[in-house]
Design a protein around this nucleic acid. Sequence first.
DNA 1: TAGGCCATCTGGTCCT
DNA 2: AGGACCAGATGGCCTA
Length: 303
Amino acid sequence: MTKSYTEESMMLESQTSTNWTDKCHSSSQDERDVENTSVPMHKDMEDDDEVGLNRLEDEDDEEEEEEEEDGDDTKPKRRGPKKKKMTKARLQRFKLRRMKANARERSRMHGLNDALESLRKIVPCYSKTQKLSKIETLRLAKNYIWALSEILRSGKSPDLMSFVQALCKGLSQPTTNLVAGCLQLNPRTFLPEQSQEMPPHMQTASASFSALPYSYQTPGLPSPPYGTMDSSHIFHVKPHAYGSALEPFFDTALTDCTSPSFDGPLKKTIRLFSFTLCIVFYSASTLRSHTQVGIGVTFFRMC
DNA sequence: TAGGCCATCTGGTCCT
DNA sequence: AGGACCAGATGGCCTA
């Protein structure tokens, strides 16, 4: 590993990367990669990177027509464009391109993670201590969008239990617990397969939302760290705006539905809805391979 | 220790 | 040609 190559990689990093906290890690990663290669640095590049690169390119041009001659008559001749010989200069350029591409890819993924973080903050369960995984964030967001769509479509205020059930559909048990913790509910009270075994006192607790303030303290709920969650987070309205949480919201929102101007909380909801849609769509499409689920497809079906 | 999650690298493809 | 995007591979970290 020569000095100039390290400097060049650092320069590339500074050009392509933003202020990520793990930038040092990324940078060292590339350095490690370069170190692993046994290609010696071109002498010119030690003096002047720019000149060195130009020289390399010139040298490379001269070798452009050079082709691999293995001289092995036993093997059938390969069709198509012949593979160019990997000269030192070409190897260097290749590495440089790769490093640039890696930096771009890191940056791209960081952008994606930023978008996911934004999404985490607007889905109805945000915790700095217990972060939702990417896949669970997307699932929860999908459920959230669906739930909001249903509200807008039906024009009815939802039962809390159905709302929570909709939110937790397909989520893992830990995430369901987390959402429950955020809502200060016991997962047992709304998980369908478990609700049948619900003790009588719990069954009363699973009544409609208006009959069950979410300040309901659950006996079996694990203790924090859970995300703090209040009704204002669910619908992104200021908590002090309404004495009781959701009911007034729906009343207002549904009244406003008839208004062409869509002012008030509904407007906020719609705006939030659109924003969530954008982020989910972007995240889902980008994460398709990583999440291994057709969230994008599901999303389109939902719409 | 296995499994889940994540960041990163990498080669391929498509687009400008 | 170069950048964006994608999907597979890999290794590290954490937790049950």
